[in-house]
Amino acid sequence: MKFRRKYLSIPYVLFLVCFVVIPVLFIVYYAFTNKGGQLSIDNLIRFFSDKTNVDVLLISFAYAIINTFICLLIGYPLAMVLANRKYNKSSVLVMLFIMPMWINFIIRTSATRDVLNWIGISTGAHSELTTIIGLVYNYLPFVVLPLYTTMLKMDRSQIEASLDLGANPFHTFFKTIIPMTMPGIVSAATMVFMPTLSSYVISDILSEYNVVLFGSYIDLYFNQADWNFGSFMALIMLLLIGLSVFITRKFSKDDRGGRSIW
């Protein structure tokens, strides 16, 4: 038998089938059956008939949007500074921002809780604020990294060209720098938005269970052995994430013909 390069993909395909395709099929199966195992749309009716469920979904969206927005607001100028040779002579600074990612995320989040309580922002009394702080802190590196790499690619003379053609620094920022870094912005936003929707450890630890995000809601039902309803919610999230990937793909087409990492 002649060796063909596509045989190399066999282990990966097996892995995908076992750990992605089959579980997704299970989710779909559980979502549309009841506890007795019969086909039903009970879960669908149950989800939309209880306002709490929809509220949790909307709140999760709100947190994801706020988190993405704040991360971009902090991360964008930060990446600009990091990508500028004048301010950042070595890549040590970049390392400093990436390094928190090396620490176990549970430990990091527990430490954040203790630090916040110690400086007087009580996780019990200001749950919303501490959750946002925790989310921003955890997802900031995911924003900085893609933005930093896009900005490194940007030619300094393009900014100079913009100034030269009569655009003041304000116009240069909005008409040249932002559009040229759009692929970076889109992939940064996707890398924050989607994981925030499904995250629950951060909100659980930092809000002392006052803020319930969709992820922890799903977790709750699975823990109560209500696999069918949990699966239905997981399916909803899967569809929403799929939809947002589809939308962002429209925007993130790289100018050089390639695609961003999503």
């Binding site: 030619d155 003379s157 393009q158 100079e160 060209a161 913009s162 040249t176 559009p179 040229m180 759009m182 100018d255 050089r256």
Partner: peptide, 8 residues
């Protein structure tokens, strides 16, 4: 020197 055109 290297054109510096706007790719977008």
């Amino acid at each position: 020197q290297r054109y510096a055109l706007f790719p977008h």
